[in-house]
Design a protein around this nucleic acid. Structure first.
Length: 231
DNA sequence: GCGACAG
DNA sequence: ATCTTGTCGC
């Protein structure tokens, strides 16, 4: 049973949230410490309105990428969107969804950043710390850090730097598409993160994990859920 | 003081 | 994230 943060985080101020991130940062590990990966999961959070957050998680077999399990959870939105504090808005409902899974994944890919964050505590990292699960941040745009041009070829990447520190990779998952911002969440290195993200990419820009998750999380989720039933 | 700013 | 139609390109 994962912690229910709905209450604990209810009256958190941005200042307290930042202090919490700074306190947790020392516990993050970017050394590979994962089991043999037989399952990977993607998680995504959508908002039905300003009031309600909805998380969807889909577990896929690895390396086949066939859907095996899924969960959807809803919870009141506990925190406004503040750049750098995304996890306080989305973690509670994600934990609730994770608790509903029959199959706990070996690796979790989250929308957003891992350590590529001002205090090295993006949502993927925070979820990793809360669950103990190896995690990777897969962002569609940049939060922080600098980088050079990204080579055009599929699988090519450029380091994302904060001063002298390598905090992630700007990865071209397909030729001719906007690159993704990949960073270690917890219990995984950058090189290994890139490897698993590319292994989850088939013919689209986004890895299958996140494609399944946000297909189920938002909009026309019924269409995706029906596909899951036909297993 | 002026921008930048995951989802 | 979410609101939204047509449209440009492979």
């Amino acid at each position: 049973m994962l912690p229910d943060l709905t209450r604990e985080w209810a009256d958190l101020t941005p200042r307290e949230a930042i202090a919490m991130q700074q306190a947790l940062a020392s516990q993050v590990s970017t050394t590979d410490d994962l089991p043999v990966v037989k399952t990977v999961a993607g998680v995504d959070v959508g908002f039905e309105n300003k009031e309600t957050a909805r998380a969807a998680i889909v577990v896929l077999s690895y390396p086949e990428l066939v859907p095996l399990d899924h969960a959807i959870a809803r919870l009141p939105t506990p925190f406004p969107y503040v750049p750098g504090l995304l996890s306080f808005r989305e973690c509670p409902v994600i934990l609730k969804a994770l608790d509903q899974l029959k199959i706990q994944p070996d690796l979790l890919l989250c929308d957003g950043m891992g350590i590529a964050h001002p205090r090295r505590l993006g949502i993927a990292t925070h979820i990793g710390l809360l669950t103990g699960m190896p995690s990777i941040g897969v962002g569609k745009s940049r939060l922080t850090g600098r980088h050079g041009e990204v080579p055009e070829g599929k699988g090519e990447w450029t380091p994302l730097m904060d001063r002298e520190e390598e905090i992630g990779a700007v990865l071209r998952t397909r030729e001719g598409v906007k690159p993704l911002f990949i960073s270690p969440g917890h219990r995984i290195s950058l090189a290994t993160s890139i490897k698993y993200v590319m292994a989850c990419v088939t013919k689209y820009r986004l890895p299958e994990t996140t494609r399944w998750a946000d297909g189920v999380a938002s909009g026309r989720g019924q269409r995706w859920l029906k596909a899951l039933e036909d297993l």
